[in-house]
């Protein structure tokens, strides 16, 4: 079912907002993670890990899920489709991967926040776990760049399924001389 232009713009707005918001939230999370790892101020360290847990659960996770859902709505509700173009397919795979890793990371994030709330962490305590949080946040930022770049550049390339769908559309229109162009850009 193809959305009306008004609905399409609404869905697009929701998708862009949640996706870019996800990226920004992870950038903020990274700053907190670096602070938690490097700061010598015990209060600052505690505050950083407590803020990381709140940010993760109430900002990053909702935005990630919203980005995934709105992306699905965008693709299924327009002629782009979900499996017709490689850039859409790769975006979907990367977004699902990033969401899974994020959900897996909520456990160590909550654990660190719990420890920080109960004790005063020295610079040597749980160092590996703290470095891991920084590494995952940094890696997450890099991974989230991929869907952003694909959305803007929309590199060409139809999947086999997409080509078959296009041929069916051409045949059904009865005009083999006219070749269907790419759908109207919606992002």
């Amino acid at each position: 079912m193809t959305m009306t232009p008004r609905l399409r713009n609404l869905a697009l707005t929701a998708h862009v907002t949640s996706s870019v918001g996800w990226f920004g939230a992870v950038a903020g999370f990274l700053a907190l993670a670096v602070t938690g790892l490097t700061s010598q101020d015990a209060q600052m360290v505690r505050a950083a890990y407590l803020a990381m847990e709140l940010t993760a659960w109430f900002v990053i996770v909702p935005l990630a899920l919203a980005s995934l859902v709105t992306g699905l709505v965008q693709s299924l509700g327009t002629t782009w489709g979900l499996f017709r173009h490689y850039w859409v397919l790769v975006k979907l795979v990367v977004t699902i991967f990033a969401t899974i890793v994020l959900l897996m990371q909520t456990q160590p994030i909550s654990y660190m926040a719990g420890v920080a709330a109960e004790t005063t962490l020295s610079s040597a305590d749980l160092r590996e776990a703290r470095i891991s949080l920084v590494a995952h946040a940094g890696g997450g930022l890099v991974v989230l760049l991929v869907p952003a770049i694909l959305s803007v550049y929309k590199p060409r390339g139809r999947t086999r399924y997409g080509r078959r769908k296009q041929h069916e559309s051409i045949r059904s229109s009865g005009d083999t001389a006219h070749v269907e162009g790419e759908p109207a850009t919606n992002a």
Binding site: P108, Y111, E118, T119, T120
Partner: peptide, 23 residues
């Protein structure tokens, strides 16, 4: 590489404080 490698095994709810001072 699982998330549990930095946490106490099988129990994310109860935290074993690291060696150091308490609150």
């Amino acid at each position: 590489h699982g998330p549990g490698r930095h946490t106490p095994s099988g129990d994310a709810g109860r935290h074993t404080p690291p060696s150091g001072v308490t609150d």
